[in-house]
């Protein structure tokens, strides 16, 4: 299986690898996949008052394509509104990274991670405002 140069670049120089404080109220965390399936993707977003993603971080257990998809997604969603980020489709990720068919699931996982992180952020925000 040949990897595209873009996958290799993201794999060798992952962008925004790391963690944000999961307890912070402005941080949303998405954890998708399963160790038994060979991929786990953790995506975290920091969202400002205006509802724009200011920062994104990832950690991924998986193959090169999974790591590259996560890395790419952190770049794609930064500066986007939650609605814009939530509308990103896996096909865009797959096309950008030129993923082969057997690796399409990596891009789907990345899409799921964005949605999960947004959902986590929104549920925290809702919980916060109901408390206030």
């Amino acid at each position: 299986m040949a990897y595209s140069s873009k996958v290799i670049d993201h794999f060798e120089n992952p962008r925004n690898a790391g963690s944000l404080d999961p307890k912070a109220t402005d941080v949303g965390t998405g954890l998708v996949g399963a160790p038994a399936c060979g991929d786990v993707l953790k995506l975290q977003i920091r969202v400002n008052e205006a509802g724009i993603i200011q920062e994104a971080k990832f950690k991924t257990f998986g193959c090169g394509s999974a790591i590259a998809s996560s890395s790419l997604v952190t770049e794609m969603i930064r500066g986007k509104t939650l609605d814009e980020a939530g509308a990103i489709k896996n096909t865009v990720i797959a096309q950008e990274l030129e993923l082969p068919p057997v690796k399409i699931h990596c891009s789907m996982l990345a899409e799921d991670a964005i949605k999960a992180a947004i959902a986590d952020y929104l549920s925290k925000k809702e919980a916060g405002s109901s408390q206030a």
Binding site: P14, A17, G18, S19, L31, V32, G33, A34, P35, A36, C37, V40, L41, K42, F58, K59, T60, F61, I67, H105, M108, L109, D112
Partner: peptide, 24 residues
């Protein structure tokens, strides 16, 4: 391992088996 969420959890003492993983 530095970019592995599982390694991070293990270091924090979280039992990975205790997490409800969604099968996909």
């Amino acid at each position: 391992r530095k970019i592995s969420p599982l390694w991070e959890m293990a270091q924090e003492g979280i039992d990975i088996k205790s997490i409800q993983w969604a099968a996909h």
